[in-house]
Design a protein around this nucleic acid. Structure first.
Lengths: 350, 350
DNA sequence: AGCCTGTAGTTTATCGGTTCAGTAGACGGT
DNA sequence: ACCGTCTACTGAACCGATAAACTACAGGCT
């Protein structure tokens, strides 16, 4: 009596039916008579039979799970509330459509390596520019994918938000309040060049800010405007504050490109004894749950994070269904809203 | 020219080598001469070849991913900050060990159905009693698994926390403050019977509370003590408050079995114009990040959620490695700590 | 009787890799 | 010349299921 795992063959032999019959019993029981069905099921459970997902996947070419390709290690990603909300949205679609969700972080430091190893029907790709090698790896694998927070690209499904308009509205709001010395804490791009060479959401947000400034008669290169790039963490916010606050021309407002950064700026300001918004206005972007609980509550731009996740997953499911069929590469850009709270006010008169 | 996907066979044929050579090129390149290796790799990428994960899994019997078996729909789970932290812990181990993470929520309402479909090397099972059908389904599938927040069971790997001791310390603290009228907001168990018939963490927490009360000379059935069961959501907390506050003998303290519930109680109390902690003390359990930001900040029992996740994943990885070998079913119980903050104080003198 | 239809299965051919047991040829030593 | 060893590769068997096409038989209709 070999002790190996029980396969369909074993069950079939024991129940005196064909392998196919056993398969039918588990997948399309209507094609079997009630009596054989029961007999097969009984024998199977008696023998401790369990289907092998890998074998099924190989044959059916479906895995019933969506992959989420992440740019960072799993624990880093999950400590960011942004992803927490994004995942909720993706999760909604997943359970609506009956998919499981595979979180695929970089494998041994490389996202490229994790792509061929993931058993999924399609990928949601978060925050990767179109011309990154990963995207062509996905192409090569011939698997559907949806780009989130990337750049619109002909023939590629994508979901993004109206970064430029959101940031423009926000900066206009600050100008209206009377701010003229503004520090900008942008997200790291890994690009040391001028902001015009940035990509994706960061570029779009910067464009929005620049447009608002211009409309207010201010140039980005004006002495009152300083731009720094920091990591999207609270520590990043802290270092943004340190750098901007120690500049010869202190800003009266700091525009952070994400709430997490803004919260870090808030921490640092409090620690430095700088009163917000009396001495310094601070704004964020995203509207994380934390933004309304902070002291002071954060003036920020709300983006519908969960909807973004839900929509991206929906597009992906569509693409999977349409695979090889008529492909409708859908693209969508979601709207943002300015939320005026406590952290930004008129600057102290000079 | 058939348009189907490119397989190893195709690459092998085109490069004039055997399928095995192609396989070697991708898996154990040291066994090929540099020139053939390059030749194969070049042909492969030229033809747009991509490995098929399902086929590899079938043959190697490894998927390189861990499954997290969840008791609720994905979006519900992810909106609970508890899981967010738990996932972080699991994530740490995952990227340390090079696993991806598959989130497996109930499929069409049934966890049982999602088990045979998930391509994973092992499962982490959150909050399921040992005698649930799901556990035997896991047994049947012959796949390693680790139970979290369940019950210790001979021969089964598990990770839990010291629920009883944590709750006992907390309730003693309330008694020391002078409380004698205490409302208890326990977690739903789906069991309408007396608390002695509850299971797992909820039972253990209740046992801890009862032990503390007894030690203080109070019986659970005493007129001042009321127990209700509510869902682990803010709404659950609200309804707990409503029920307990409308009782003939109003409590001076409400002990919630989770921070989420406690935060809901806080909301409801504020809405009802009840001052915390002046008119009512409220305590939680977990020490979510939110607990220290709430107004007033929450007196609660801290449990190391992320560590729990990390440890569970580590146990699972060990079990996978040991599979078929010498199996060490590891069990661990983590410690809890009482955190005294603002939400619990001495009751107003009668 | 002859034909059609439907039910309840069976047979055979893959799906796309990996593994194991070889083997051909080069090379060194004696 | 002979043997052993190494390197670089090959061929066939398998992993465990599903899909498509086909068969056997019963029953109804003409």
């Amino acid at each position: 009596m070999k002790t190996g795992r029980v396969t369909m063959r074993d069950v079939a032999a024991r129940a005196n039916v064909s392998k196919t019959a056993v398969s039918l019993a588990f997948n399309d029981s209507s094609r079997l008579s009630e009596s054989t069905l029961q007999h097969i099921l009984a024998t199977a459970s008696e023998m401790g039979y369990a289907q092998d997902p890998a074998a099924r996947m190989l044959r059916t070419r479906r895995t019933n799970s969506l992959g989420l390709l992440l740019p960072q290690q799993l624990d880093r990603v999950l400590e960011n509330p942004y992803y927490s909300q994004f995942l909720q949205g993706v999760g909604q679609t997943c359970n609506q459509e009956g998919y499981t969700l595979l979180l695929a972080p970089p494998l041994r430091g490389s996202m490229l390596k994790s792509i061929p190893y993931a058993a999924v029907d399609g990928f949601i790709v978060s925050g990767l520019e179109y011309d990154r090698g990963e995207v062509s790896a996905l192409r090569q694998r011939g698997i559907p994918f949806v780009l989130v927070d990337s750049e619109e690209h002909e023939g590629v499904a994508s979901v993004e938000i109206d970064d430029a308009a959101g940031m423009e509205t926000l900066v206009r709001h600050l100008l209206d309040l009377g701010h003229r010395q503004i520090g900008i804490a942008a997200l790291e791009t890994g690009d040391e060049g001028p902001w015009e060479s940035w990509r994706g959401p960061v570029l779009r947000r910067m464009q929005g800010a620049v447009a608002a400034l211009r409309a207010g008669g201010i140039d980005v290169d004006a002495p009152g405007i300083h731009v720094v790039q920091v990591a999207c963490t609270r520590e990043g916010g802290k270092s943004a504050f340190d750098e901007l606050w120690s500049a010869p021309e202190r800003p009266t407002a700091i525009v952070a490109f994400s709430d997490v950064i803004a919260l870090g700026v808030l921490d640092a300001a409090k620690q430095a004894g700088v009163a917000v918004p009396a001495d310094l206005s601070v704004t964020g972007f995203d509207d994380l749950t934390e933004a309304q609980w902070s002291q002071p509550s954060l003036t920020t731009v709300r983006q519908p994070i969960a909807s973004k996740g839900r929509l991206a997953a929906e597009f992906l499911v569509e693409a999977i269904a349409a695979d090889e069929g008529a492909v409708t590469r859908r693209q969508h850009r979601l709207h943002t809203t300015l939320l005026v709270r406590e952290s930004a006010a008129a600057p102290r008169p000079a």
